[in-house]
Nucleic acid binder design. Structure first.
Lengths: 108, 108
DNA sequence: CAAACACATGAGCATGTATTCATATATCGG
DNA sequence: CCGATATATGAATACATGCTCATGTGTTTG
């Protein structure tokens, strides 16, 4: 069972990954640490917006920032999360059929 | 790489799991199909709110609804998602240390 | 058919949040 | 120290979203 507290905690992480730009930011740091400027350039986001998102991701420990001189590089400290994301990104590239209707179950 | 479209699609799914009540609803359907009333009772949510959330989860194909007489039972049609969630729920019960600061990397 | 039950849906509100613009902080080169 | 570069932060705003209340739809039973 999932307690309300754990649902809030886990939900907070999913909520952060629920924004497309934030998800792209995290994804861009999956294979190697990325500087803020490189992330912003790669994803075509303003440095300010990128930094705002990075702050949220850092607060939730989804990303970890390491300063090297003027630049700060971000990467995923949690290998469990990294694996989950790698997995889901791979999964989302597969085709799937569409059916959102309520189906009828056969009689018992 | 993760395209913007795929980020939107995957992000949409994470966004839905990002609400604690919705996450609890999905989690409650992990082991066996659950009727709307049972979900609402178990999680102490109003039937209306439960149904609103179920509609969103159904639209995103995170849950599938099957009618049996007056009741509608919901469960997870995607075993990939089920496994991911089972995994993350298990993970969130483990302890973890707290460090959201920017750390200093050693000189090159 | 009518009443009861289970669920779905629409409107409305209060709150949260993604983005932008302006500004501040930190680090390095000269 | 000064300017330039890189990142962070604060305020303001337009928009999204969770929730409730009221009502509608579908299904079984009398």
């Amino acid at each position: 069972m999932l307690t309300a507290d754990h649902a809030t905690e886990l939900g907070e992480m999913f909520r952060l990954l629920g924004d497309p730009n934030r998800l792209r930011i995290v994804a861009s740091c999956l294979s190697q640490p990325m500087s803020v400027g490189d992330i912003a350039d790669t994803l075509d986001l303003s440095p300010s917006l990128t930094s705002h998102h990075l702050r949220l991701l850092r607060s939730a420990r989804l990303l970890k920032g390491t300063r090297h001189g003027k630049q700060v590089f971000y990467d995923l400290p949690d290998c469990h999360v990294r694996q989950m994301l790698t997995n889901m990104i791979e999964h989302v590239t597969e085709p799937h059929d569409v059916d959102e209707a309520i189906t009828e179950g056969e009689d018992p």
